[in-house]
């Protein structure tokens, strides 16, 4: 590790994280319809990026470490996309042991 970042960087990150927490909690009380989960997940993503970049110092990490972090996200995206291809296109049928209607 080279020389560490100034305390100010960490303090600002912490303040930003708490401000985002207050924002997402406040927004959750408003009726935003379909935008509500979009907003809360967007804020969660920003928080996670702040944690990764400043607290986990990805900002100063080697290209190899950054690559591994990105591959982890990419792998998760593949998992979601391929599984989603199944779940998003499959109809749900009643299970065989469901009591048939009208009998």
């Amino acid at each position: 590790m080279n020389s560490p970042a100034p305390v100010r960087i960490y303090t600002m990150t912490w303040v930003a994280l708490l401000a985002l927490l207050a924002t997402t909690f406040g927004l959750a009380h408003l009726d935003l319809g379909a935008m509500s989960p979009v907003a809360s997940l967007a804020i969660a993503t920003v928080k996670a990026v702040l944690v990764a970049v400043f607290f986990m110092h990805l900002r100063r990490a080697s290209a190899l470490v950054v690559l591994f972090a990105l591959v982890a996200i990419f792998g998760l995206a593949i998992l979601f996309t391929l599984s989603g291809a199944d779940y998003a296109t499959r109809e749900i049928h009643a299970a065989p042991w469901t009591a048939p209607e009208g009998h």
Binding site: H29, P37, A44, A48, V51, A52, F55, M56
Partner: peptide
């Protein structure tokens, strides 16, 4: 140890809106 700790924090950052903030209005 710090990397592990921050990761566990980041996981919670997603669990929080998914379980607590789904439908608080009205």
């Amino acid at each position: 140890t710090g990397l592990y700790w921050h990761f566990v924090d980041a996981i919670w950052v997603f669990l929080y809106p998914l379980f607590y903030l789904v439908d608080l209005h009205g």
